[in-house]
Amino acid sequence: MTMTVHVDIVSAEKEIFSGLAEMVFAPAELGEVGISPRHAPLITRLSPGEVRVKVSEKEHYPFYISGGILEVQPHLVTVLADTAIRAKDIDEAAAIAAKAEAEEALSDKSGNVDYATAQAQLLDAIMQLRTLDRYRKRGE
């Protein structure tokens, strides 16, 4: 029997996932990390991107998160996400629209645009689309 670790993913609004997993992949700030059971204690911030929970060889649960915190204890992995969406629930049309809007805002030279917000929005939309893309590729 393979070793498992308990994984909890919560967003500010609700509990998204809770259960045992063989491995968890998360977009840490310094690069993507993969957490196996009995990993050393770790705390890191997360960038926008895909969190993937591998429950078994065939069963994967992908989620999109917009940033947050990852805490690892040897037998417990906790993801505190700012917002979290199941990959299959991502609204593609809304993400594309948000991306276009952010790109337009960034190309605006008039100076009355908040660049930091627009940039964050762009990154958010791109990562959502990428998560969705990867989810579909794996599905087929």
Partner: peptide, 19 residues
């Protein structure tokens, strides 16, 4: 024991505790 902090302890703790 202690955590491994990425990128470093001060950054992560500041963020986490305020949160």
């Amino acid at each position: 024991w202690d955590y491994i902090y990425e990128p470093d302890a001060k950054d992560v703790l500041d963020y986490l505790l305020v949160r």
